[in-house]
Structures are given as C-alpha cells and as structure tokens.
C-alpha cells in the first residue's frame, strides 16, 4: 500500500447544516401533506419545505465543491479513491433494494392478491365480498369502482415507452463513449458525448411527462385508479425522479469537464455518475418489461 497517509478532513460544518436542512425538508413535507389532506393552510409546510430544499441545495453544492477542491489539490490517495468507490457501489445497491420493494409489491398484487380477490387460487373465497369482480391485469375494473375507478385504457408499450427504452439504452452507450474519450484525454469528444447523453436523458423526461399527461387526461390512469395505477406511478415515478437526478449530475460533470477537471486516470466523480446512469438504465429495463410489456 502507498505511503501516502489517509486524508482525514478537519472539522466540517457541512454535516450538521445538512442535518438541519434535512429536518426542515422532512418537517415541511409532512406539514404540507397534512395541510393538503385536511384542506387547511399550506403556507407553513410549503415555506419550510422550500426553505429546506434551498438550504440543502446550497449545502450540497458547497460540500461537493469542497470535496472537488480537496481532490484537485491532490489530498486524496489511491486508497481514498477506493473508499469513494465502495461508498458509491453500496449506495447504488441500496437504491436497487428501494426499487426491489416496489417490484415486490407489483409481483405480489399481480400474482396473489388480485387473483384471490377475483376468486382464483387458495384464498379465492375472498370473492364473496366482491361479487362480480374478475381478476385481470392490467386491472381495468377494480373491486370497488366507486372508491377506485379503474382506468379506461393503459399506455401502449410500443409507443412512447419503446422510444424511451431506446433513448435510455443509447444514452448508456453515449455515456460510455464519453468515458472512453476521457480515458484517451480527448476532451472535445467527451463534451460532445456527455452533452448528447444529457439531451437523451432530458428527452426521456419530456416523453415521460407526456405519457403521464396522456394517462391522466385521456386514459383515466391515475394514482387513484386502483392498484394498477398505484404500482405504475410509484415505479415509473421514482424512476423518473432518478433520471432527473442523474441528468442533473451529468450536467455538473459536463461543467467540470469543460472547466478542465478530471484526468485520464483520475476521474472518480465522472465514473460514479456513469455508474448511477447505468443503474437508472437497468431499472428502466425492468420497468419496461414488467410494468409495460407483461
């Protein structure tokens, strides 16, 4: 192992400020949601939430620039780089598990609870309570149509979703190309491929929004449309949030490349973002398969 000592940063104010910001965000979000559901005054919740978000944004910018600064001053050893790598990999693993919970829910309702409610399988007696209900997937007629009016149609997987799949797949290719060019130190090309990735990601988000608009306006496919809508939106919604975050991260990286950061053999920040992007991509493949196609 190298003789360079491990860099232990001196005291830092970022963590405690970030905790306060997180608290503001959480409290604000809670107060806001309660106010919305109780149809009461949302001012407090909204201002706390926005305030918290702003603080968090500032803190994260500051904290990351601090880290970038340290990195550029060569304080980080190879070992530090490995710590970051482990950190990022396990963070992505935790994200996978987050999505796993929602995929699990999807498989459960599709294969167990909806068939049971429809009178199939070992617990089919449940159908006694929901006479006339028949199991189907996508679930167009819910057991209680008054409480949860089912959708009148679902998204055609071979239109926007297919295009979106192609978009994300090609964005994975472009981001990898950018990475190769970075290793070869061909900066203009890096910028080009990165920019293209960002464009692809943004178009994805736009299409996804269009899809949501269609779902809400013409298909009656909403959060309230029963379990199909619920699983559909929670999975695609959280995925969409991740794409948005990933795109933002790519933009930061693009800026840094333009500013001349990263060297062909030392560019962990760049790599971390590409890992994240691939992860988002793989999740989409799962979504495309299980939410749209099957």
């Amino acid at each position: 192992m190298s003789h360079q000592t491990y860099y232990v940063p001196a005291q830092s104010r970022w963590p405690i400020f970030a905790s306060i910001a997180l608290f503001l965000m959480a409290y604000g979000a809670g107060a806001l949601m309660n106010a919305l559901s109780a149809k009461s005054d949302t001012a407090l919740g909204l201002s706390l939430l926005i305030g918290g978000l702003l603080c968090m944004g500032l803190i994260m910018t500051g904290w990351f620039s601090h880290v970038i600064d340290e990195s550029r001053r060569g304080l980080y050893s190879v070992q530090m780089d490995r710590s970051f790598r482990w950190g990022m990999s396990w963070f992505i693993f935790s994200e996978i598990m987050f999505f796993a919970a929602f995929f699990g829910a999807l498989f459960y309702v599709r294969n167990l609870s909806v068939p049971w409610l429809g009178g199939e399988g070992e617990k089919g007696v449940a159908n006694m309570l929901w006479q006339g209900f028949e199991a189907s997937w996508p679930l167009m007629k819910t057991p209680d149509m008054a409480a949860y009016p089912g959708p009148s149609g679902v998204i055609d997987p071979l239109h926007l979703p297919l295009i979106n799949t192609l978009l994300l797949l090609s964005s994975s290719v472009t981001v990898t190309l950018a990475h190769y060019r970075l290793k070869q130190n061909r900066r203009p090309q890096v910028v080009l491929w990165l920019a293209l990735t960002i464009v692809l990601g943004s178009v994805f988000i736009v299409f996804q929004t269009m899809e949501y608009a269609e779902a809400y306006q013409t298909l009656g496919l909403t959060l309230q449309a029963g379990i199909y809508g619920a699983t559909f939106f929670i999975l695609t919604g959280f995925h969409g949030v991740h794409v948005t975050l990933g795109t933002l991260m790519l933009m930061v990286i693009l800026l840094r490349v333009i500013r001349g950061h990263f060297s062909p053999d030392n560019h962990f920040g760049f790599e971390a973002v590409t890992w994240y992007w691939h992860f988002v991509d793989v999740v989409w493949l799962g979504l495309f398969l299980f939410v749209y196609l099957m």
């Binding site: 049971w116 409610l117 617990k123 007696v125 449940a126 006694m128």
Partner: peptide, 9 residues
Amino acid sequence: DAIPGFINE
C-alpha cells in the same frame, strides 16, 4: 387474522 377485503378460513 380478520383482514378487511379478504377472507380467511
């Protein structure tokens, strides 16, 4: 367990 919306035997 008595579960709303389902029937246990």
